[in-house]
Design a protein around this nucleic acid. Structure first.
Length: 650
RNA sequence: GCUGCUGUAGCUCAGGGGUAGAGCACUCCCUUGGUAAGGGAGAGGUCCGGAGUUCGAAUCUCCGCAGCAGCACCA
């Protein structure tokens, strides 16, 4: 038999018969390694212990100590074990697919009866049972007709469909966990006993469309999470609890920021404390945009259908628009309008008033544009995904030559804004020309190059997403990462020659002829509503002082302090700090607890000693120790602290 | 929009075919207390909406509405 040479991670090589399996290699090294082995990495590919190796290769034997392959195998094998458990309990359930996902796996089933939470417990028990059986995992390669015949005989139509979708030249691999069989690419563990029976949990069951297609059957998906050991699972569950504590819907209620109700689904009733965040944010954005060379406009909410037909929205976007029909008394027919879902067509109307010269470009037109979109009910989520919202929108009208410069300017503005909120790092995605597109290859070349050069000029990291651009132009997406590692797409930048064309925007060039401007759609925060939701979750409600809806509570310890409390509140208000008096008949312990839970960043306490010395005792949120300072000093300090980041120096 | 679950006091939740429950919050009284809950009393509900079953429905059934999770959607 031919010999092959396998090279180990330490650089040593050893000869084996061609066709040797990693299981045999591991056992040849040490019997104990043969037992501990879970998989191999062969030439960088994750390799089942049973797959033969036929050529010279590099090889590493993986054990549970190797985190990445271990988690992959645990989650993947658990998906199979779960499917097996389900079919052992309910033999008529049809299996489909069950991939590994972040932190765990899911498996989709076709079953008439819905799975209940109690069922999950039962499945989990059965899974532990299967793990305890230490069933061997074995594999075989089948030819197509045999596999299809097998699944047809077993009434598993989804598997047949999956086989049809696998490219013809790929071998079909079958895996057995004990007697239970599944079509699977692998790799897998040696036996079910290698699975950590105490480090997984079935989390939830939910509907999911077969092959992600909403026109096809709705299956039942069971989600599970798994780790290498019990501590990993515990840490994950703890993390989920922490994330739930940050939920902006919960904090919004607790902090009395806003509410929503049945009569206006997907729309927000802002309470005073929430609206203060909103207006502070909007004031800040207005200053940043003004400094960035933007002009601000405001355009109508209710606009006649005619404009939406011209812009193309009536055709493509109608199902997402709120349509308003008005029966005017003397009109021959009803007037049909729509609430604007976007601002761009209105901005072109402003642009089109009067003749524009090339000297007017670039024209950066901003609007805090109040938009309404009829989002599908299932998409609504707190204040993050709503039907009524306000974008920090702007459209830059410019020439082709100006695109690169305008892109770079925008990225710089965006970076400066994000860093003011503590998001120092963000990712840029450049989406390029899709299959179906309009415009010449040259213009795509030019515009894509302009965007890429602009990003390079700013030195920001980026990646390219080929084919994901709009049909008329490429775009940039900006994603920031929050305090607990979640990624949010907020900023966007899109090159559009199409809408100026449709709505007839022109400018007079140096040559005296009319030309078509480009339109750059751009937003930094996305929508104020969603961005506030992100800020709340990012900070767990403890917003930075300048954005905190309640900045200072001045609390009396004894009623003899009440007069000074009111004096301090007045002094703070005079310098622009939001201060409230708490002279209620309660003990200081009670007041401190209540305002701390309400996430008020600064509590100033005033008792007999403070009255005597005209001082206040300062307690900061999250700190136990207090300091006593003079009234003048604290007012001056907090006045500076309350300034928005763009007004810090000066 | 689809699948499943949920809807009881301002909030968090228990209950469950026969007059509606708790804790916190709220109001009043006592208490002037030094940094995360001082004591007492009181008020508060169309049990999401509608229809049905029943002598009787908050409870069971059906139809809506809204919320939650996931999927699909986010031109």
């Amino acid at each position: 038999m031919a010999q092959i040479s396998l090279t180990f991670p330490d650089g040593n090589a050893r000869e084996f018969d061609a066709g040797v399996t990693p299981a045999e290699v591991a056992s040849a090294i040490a019997t104990s390694l043969g037992k501990k082995a879970i998989s191999a990495t062969v030439n960088g590919t994750h390799w089942d212990l049973q797959w033969p190796i036929t050529e010279d290769a590099s090889i590493a034997i993986n054990t549970m100590k190797d985190e990445e392959p271990a988690l992959e195998l645990i989650r993947h094998d658990l998906a199979h074990v779960m499917a097996r458990a389900v079919q052992e309990i309910w033999p008529d359930v049809k299996v489909t697919i069950g991939p590994v996902i972040q932190n765990g796996w899911y498996y989709d089933f076709d079953r008439e009866e819905p799975f209940t939470p109690e069922d999950l417990g039962e499945i989990e028990k059965k899974m532990k049972d299967i793990i305890n059986r230490r069933d061997p995992v074995t594999t075989e390669t089948w030819d197509r007709p045999r596999a299809i015949a097998h699944y047809e005989a077993n009434n598993e139509p989804y598997k047949v469909e999956l086989i049809d979708a696998i490219p013809g030249d790929e071998p079909l691999r079958m895996y057995w966990h004990g007697h239970w069989q599944d079509l699977c690419r692998g790799p897998h563990l040696q036996h079910t006993g290698q699975l950590p029976g105490d480090a997984f949990k079935l989390m939830s069951v939910a509907g999911a469309y077969w092959r992600g297609d909403s026109d096809r059957a709705m299956l039942q998906r069971i989600y599970g999470v798994a780790f290498r050991n019990r501590d990993g699972l515990k840490a994950h569950l703890h993390m989920l609890e922490q994330a739930a504590l940050r939920d902006h819907r919960k904090l919004g209620r607790e902090m009395n920021l806003f509410h929503m109700q049945e009569e206006a689904p997907g729309q927000i009733f802002w309470h005073p404390d929430g609206w203060r965040i909103y207006t502070t944010l909007q004031d800040y954005m207005r200053r940043k945009q003004y400094a960035g060379g933007y002009v601000e406009v405001n355009t109508p909410q209710v606009v006649d259908r005619k404009l939406w037909v011209e812009s193309g929205h009536w055709d493509k976007y109608q199902e997402h628009m709120f349509i308003v029909e008005v029966d005017e008394e003397h009109a021959r027919e009803k007037s049909i309008n729509a609430l604007k879902p976007m601002n761009c067509p209105c901005h072109v109307q402003v642009y089109n008033q009067g003749l524009k010269s090339y000297r007017d470009l670039p024209l950066r037109m901003a609007e805090f544009g109040s938009c309404n979109r009829y989002e599908p009910s299932g998409a609504l989520h707190g204040i993050m995904r709503v039907r009524g919202f306000t974008q920090d929108d702007a459209h830059i009208f410019c020439t082709a030559e100006q695109i690169e410069d305008e892109t770079a300017k925008f990225i710089e503005l965006l970076a400066s804004i994000y860093s003011d909120f503590g998001f120092d790092k963000f990712d840029i995605k450049l989406s390029t020309r899709p299959e179906k597109r309009v415009g010449t290859e040259e213009s795509w070349d030019q515009v894509e190059a302009a965007l890429e050069n602009a990003i390079k000029k700013t030195g920001q990291a980026y990646e390219i997403d080929p084919g994901e651009g709009a049909f008329y132009g490429p775009k940039l997406d900006f994603k920031l990462t929050d305090a607990i590692g979640r990624v949010w797409q907020c900023g966007t930048f899109q090159v559009d020659p199409n809408l100026p064309e449709r709505l007839g925007a022109t400018y007079v060039g140096e040559d005296g002829a009319k030309h078509r401007p480009y339109m750059l759609h751009r937003a930094t925060l996305g929508s104020f509503e969603r961005f506030i939701g992100i800020l709340i979750e990012n900070s767990a409600g403890k917003l930075p002082f300048w954005l905190a809806p309640r900045q200072v509570v001045v609390a009396s310890i004894v009623s003899d302090g009440d007069d000074l409390v009111h004096e301090v509140v007045g002094a703070l208000k005079d310098v622009g700090v939001w201060a409230e008096a708490d002279t209620r008949n309660e003990k200081i312990n009670y007041k401190v607890r209540e305002h701390s839970l309400a996430k008020v960043p600064v509590i100033l306490a005033i008792g007999g000693r403070e009255v005597e010395n005209r001082t206040v005792t300062v307690r900061r949120l999250g700190q136990k120790q207090t300091t006593t300072v003079s009234l003048d000093e604290i007012v001056a300090d907090l006045a500076i602290e309350a300034r928005p980041p763009d007004q810090k120096q000066s």
